[in-house]
C-alpha cells in the first residue's frame, strides 16, 4: 500500500492530520457458502478475499474492476449492509466490523451509500420530500428550522428545484433521480459516502453533470468517498487514489499517477489497454488478459 501526501491536494480541506485515516479496512473477506455438502464438505465462493485499504478525510478512493470482482460486495460491507466473513473495519478509530443496534444506527449517520440504479433505489410511492426526509425520521432527528426546510436545502444543494418537494420519482429523469439519491445520502451530513456506480446508468451528458456535482460536494463539504465504478476514465477523473480489484482480491492500489501512468500489475495494464481511446482513431494494440471473468 502506498502512503502519500500529494493525493490530498485536490481533496478539499483536511481537518485531521493526513496520517490518520477516516476508514481503515484490514483483511476484509467475504465468502458465500454454495451447496452445503451432505457430509460437511463445504464449498465457498470467495467474493472478497483479504482486502485492505484506508480512506483519509476528504479523500476519494476509487474501487475499480470488472463485474464479479467483488467491488460492490466490498462497498456493501463498508456500509454494513453485508456482514463480513473475516477482517476488520475501523471507522474514526473505532472497530465497527460487528457493530449492532444503536451503535450501528449512529454509524449509518456517518457512512452513507449512493446506489447505481436511480429507478429501483427510490420508493415510487413516496414523494421526493419523504424520500429525502427518511434518514432524518429514522434517526429521530429534527433539524433546526424543521424537516421540510432541511429537505429543501438539500434539494437545492444537489441542483433540484426545492419546490419539487411533493413530486414523485417517476416525474423525474434518470439524472434528476440520481440527484435525489444523493440528497438522501447527504441528509445526515455523513463523513463518508460509498458511491456504487453512481453514474453508469446515465446518459453521457448527464453523467458529467452528476460527476461535477459530486466533485463540488466533496470540495464544499469535505466528504470522503469510496467510489466504485467500472469506468476507468470516470474513476481517474474523480479519485486521487485508486484500488484495482480482480477476482475478489486487490491487485494494485496507488495514486492516480501510479495507476494510470505507471501501472505495475499486469491486470491493471490489461484493463487500461482495453479502454477504447477517444483520442486515437482506428484499431489500437491491446494487452489481452487470459480468459473471462466469471
Amino acid at each position: 500500500m502506498t502512503d502519500l501526501a500529494d493525493s490530498a491536494a485536490s481533496g478539499g480541506t483536511l481537518t485531521t492530520p493526513v496520517s490518520e485515516p477516516l476508514l481503515k479496512v484490514e483483511g476484509l473477506t467475504k465468502h458465500y457458502p454454495v451447496r452445503g455438502g451432505f457430509f460437511g464438505t463445504k464449498q465457498f465462493v470467495r467474493a472478497v478475499e483479504n482486502v485492505s485499504f484506508d480512506v483519509r478525510p476528504g479523500e476519494s478512493l476509487g474501487l475499480v474492476g470488472e463485474s464479479g470482482c467483488g467491488k460492490t460486495t466490498t462497498g456493501r460491507m463498508l456500509v454494513r449492509l453485508l456482514e463480513s466473513t473475516s477482517g476488520k473495519i475501523t471507522f474514526q478509530g473505532e472497530d465497527i466490523t460487528h457493530a449492532k443496534g444503536t451503535r450501528l444506527r449512529n454509524l449509518r449517520q456517518d457512512i452513507q451509500i449512493i446506489f447505481q440504479d436511480p429507478y429501483s433505489s427510490l420508493n415510487p410511492r413516496h414523494t421526493v420530500g419523504k424520500i429525502v426526509a427518511m434518514p432524518l425520521q429514522v434517526n429521530g432527528i429534527t433539524p433546526p428550522g424543521g424537516v421540510k426546510k432541511r429537505v429543501q436545502e438539500l434539494l437545492d444543494t444537489v441542483g433540484l428545484n426545492p419546490e419539487h418537494y411533493n413530486r414523485y420519482p417517476h416525474e423525474f429523469s434518470g439524472g434528476q433521480r440520481q440527484r435525489i439519491g444523493i440528497a438522501r445520502a447527504l441528509a445526515l451530513q455523513p463523513k463518508l459516502i460509498v458511491a456504487d456506480e453512481p453514474v453508469s446508468a446515465l446518459d453521457v451528458s448527464i453523467q458529467a453533470q452528476v460527476i461535477n456535482l459530486l466533485r463540488r460536494l466533496q470540495k464544499d463539504l469535505g466528504l470522503s468517498f469510496v467510489f466504485i465504478a467500472h469506468d476507468l476514465a470516470v474513476v481517474r477523473h474523480f479519485c486521487e487514489r485508486i484500488a484495482v480489484m480482480y477476482r475478489g482480491e486487490m491487485v494494485e492500489i496507488g495514486t492516480r499517477e501510479e495507476i494510470y501512468e505507471r501501472p505495475s500489475h499486469p491486470y491493471t495494464q490489461a484493463l487500461l489497454s482495453a479502454v477504447p481511446d477517444v483520442t486515437k482513431i482506428g484499431r489500437t494494440k491491446r494487452i489481452k488478459p487470459e480468459g473471462d471473468v466469471r
Binding site: A208, A233, V278, T279
Partner: peptide, 11 residues
Amino acid sequence: WGLLASVPSLH
C-alpha cells in the same frame, strides 16, 4: 462538442 467535453479522459 458537448458529448466530447462531457466524457472524462484517460489522459
